[in-house]
């Protein structure tokens, strides 16, 4: 939209300007700002193309293939962890269980936890872990795959840190981030999964995202 001469003359009158301001304030009060879209964007013709999660294919705790199509038309929350981790993962899992409970009645919301220690975290082990948490596989996928593909998707698609580091107490460094992904595969929020208040914000944002059909 361009400023035309007429518009400029409209704004020039102080009362009109005031009216416009009130209108804007009113709009803000009645309608919430949409969630931000993370990552780089490109302008292709007149369309803006946003960063999306790259295609992936992993195996979950039931040995089922999990890929982008699993999350087609779904909102999901992703994180990176490993079952033998004693530092931040137990807190993250406690918080993710809260997200799981909070989204129980939302069939279009799924959870995706990637192990960053696929050598140790086999399908059988992930199955046992999920079962012990008491969560359903169809709503919360615990996935494993090749180490490279997991680290790569963490870093390039989810902007999350995940790598091996023998100097760390458990042998890995990784962020405790929870990422909120919309129905188009775009990142709409990043939260510290070790902090209760941040996860409260995530739960609110999931509801906000649903109110705009998940896009």
């Amino acid at each position: 939209m361009k400023f035309t001469k007429e518009m400029r003359s409209q704004f020039s009158h102080p009362f009109n300007l005031l009216a416009v301001c009130i209108l804007f304030v009113g709009a803000c009060v009645t309608k919430e700002k949409p969630l931000p879209i993370f990552g780089e964007r490109e302008l292709v013709g007149t369309d803006t193309v946003y960063h999306r999660i790259a295609p992936f294919q992993f195996v979950d705790q039931d040995s089922a293939l999990v890929s982008n199509t699993t999350f087609q038309d779904k909102i999901y929350v992703a994180d990176f962890f490993f079952t033998s981790c004693r530092t931040i993962c137990p807190i993250m899992k406690t918080q993710m269980v809260r997200v799981y409970e909070a989204t129980k009645e939302m069939p279009d919301v799924l959870l995706l936890s990637h192990t960053i220690d696929p050598e140790y975290d086999t399908v059988a082990l992930l199955h046992d872990f999920a079962e012990r948490l008491g969560v359903e596989s169809k709503r919360w996928h615990f996935v494993t795959g090749s180490k490279d593909s997991i680290y790569k998707i963490a870093q390039t698609s989810y902007f999350a840190t995940a790598m091996e580091d023998k100097s760390e107490p458990d042998g890995f460094i990784h962020s405790g981030a929870f990422l909120l992904i919309d129905k188009k595969g775009r990142i709409r929020g990043k939260y510290d999964g070790t902090k209760e208040e941040e996860v409260n914000r995530l739960i609110v944002d999931i509801k906000r995202l649903r109110s705009t059909n998940g896009i």
């Binding site: 931040i88 137990p90 807190i91 899992k93 406690t94 269980v97 012990r132």
Partner: peptide, 15 residues
């Protein structure tokens, strides 16, 4: 408390 939780309630059948 990372695993057993601050309130000592543990987590599922994991901790």
């Amino acid at each position: 408390s990372n695993c057993h939780q601050k309130d000592g309630r543990g987590l599922g059948l994991v901790y």
